[in-house]
Computed example of a mutant assay.
Amino acid sequence: MIAVLLLDFGGPEKLDDVEPFLKNLFSDRLIFPFPFGQEIFAKIIAKYRSPKVIEEYKLIGGRSPLIEQSKNICRDLEEGFKKANLDIPVFVGMRYWKPTIDETLSQIASLQPKGMVVIPMFPHYSTATTLSVLQEFQKSYDARRLTIPYQLVEWWYDQPQFIAAWCYSIKKALDSFDEKIRKTVPILFTAHGLPVSFVTERKDPYPKQVKESCEKIMTYLGGDNPSYLSYQSKVGPIEWLKPSTMKFVKELGSRGVRELIIVPISFLTDHIETLFEIDHEIIPEAKKAGIAQVVRCEALYYGPYLKKTLEDLVLRKLPSLLGG
């Protein structure tokens, strides 16, 4: 038996979870490095931000859909492996919420698998996401003195199935537009932002990988659709990657753009960043700027290719674990 461990951040499952979730998030020095008193800083910022964030979650159902959708992905993957006569149970562990990475590792260890395939649910590598979950994984693995061999998938932004997944989602969104203009509707890729210092000081490859994904998608998509890339979800006063998605949609409106597809390129499932930030803030702002028809692509969770992508990533690692 080979086990699969998917790693993600997690999210609040009810409104009362928002403040403790934020505290866990702000306690991570890889995301919010504070020169001293990280835990005190995290507690203060979480308490300050939680009332606003709670109101945002109220508008999207009172919870994050991430955990439920992640568990569904695990179930679908496991069922697919069973149909192929492969004994590969699939688990998910969360960096900032439950089930924690440590709890999930304990569950996997109890099954005594021959090996593990570990996949961060972040196609593009970043020190703020991929490295954070992998460090937590390694910390728990070492603390439990596990000896299970494992293979890591550190990034998968350029995998053909991942590119096909976004092409599928974009084509589905294009169907919302009049057939006469589908090949020319502008496409705006929006990725979760990152402090500029992460790129200049840590040499974070994230923006380069995101750009390469977008270019590959547009190549495979074909057509004459103009495309752009911007960044969202900025937190704090420091400089983040630009252009800002919020500002850029206003600019597109001022240029005379009247139709637009928004592609949340760095999000695999539904998040507050898509359901609230894009749907309740960015899209209304775009319409105010004169863009009459704006369509956000569905998360890859809803299409057939995310499962195929993850299956392919697992199967590629099996020979190394089975000695083949």
Score class of each variant (00 low, 15 high):
Tyr220Thr: 14
Thr219Leu: 14
Leu7Asn: 02
Thr309Phe: 02
Ser50Thr: 12
Ser254Leu: 13
Lys139Asp: 03
Val249His: 06
Leu105Phe: 13
Gly62Gln: 06
Gly61Ala: 07
Phe267Arg: 00
Ser266Asn: 01
Leu86Pro: 12
Leu241Phe: 02
Thr309Cys: 15
Gln209Glu: 14
Ala173Cys: 11
Phe137Gly: 07
Val210Gly: 04
Pro12Ile: 10
Ile119Tyr: 06
Phe248Lys: 02
Ile2Pro: 06
Ala84Cys: 04
Pro149Trp: 10
Ile291Thr: 09
Val314Ile: 14
Leu66Lys: 06
Lys172Asn: 15
Ser140Asn: 14
Gly303Gln: 11
Ser244Phe: 13
Lys183Val: 12
Leu6Gly: 07
Leu6Asp: 04
Glu103Tyr: 09
Ile163Tyr: 05
Thr127Lys: 02
Val257Glu: 06
Leu111Lys: 13
Phe122Pro: 07
Lys216Cys: 14
Glu259His: 14
Lys183Asn: 15
Ala165Asn: 08
Val249Asp: 10
Ile181Pro: 13
Glu103Thr: 03
Val117Asn: 06
Gly10Thr: 11
Ala299Arg: 05
Arg63Phe: 13
Asp87Gly: 08
Asp8Asn: 15
Leu146Phe: 00
Arg95Pro: 09
Leu77Glu: 10
Pro264His: 00
Ala46Phe: 08
Arg95Asn: 05
Gln112Trp: 00
Gln138Thr: 11
Leu321His: 06
Asp76Arg: 14
Ile73Met: 10
Ile40Gln: 06
Leu7Tyr: 02
Val133Asp: 00
Met1Glu: 07
Cys214Asp: 06
Ala191Pro: 15
Gln38Cys: 04
His271Pro: 09
Thr130Tyr: 01
Leu188Val: 15
Leu300Met: 15
Ile265Met: 04
Thr200Gly: 01
Leu268Ala: 02
His192Ser: 08
Pro51Gln: 10
Gly62Lys: 02
Val314Arg: 08
Leu111Ile: 12
Pro205Gln: 04
Val263Cys: 12
Ser266Leu: 09
Tyr141Ile: 04
Ala165Tyr: 08
Glu19Trp: 03
Lys83Arg: 15
Lys208Thr: 12
Gly236Val: 01
Ile278Val: 15
Gln38Val: 10
Ser213Arg: 05
Met246Ile: 13
Glu215Ile: 12
Arg258Cys: 11
Arg182Ile: 14
Val185Lys: 04
Gln209Asp: 14
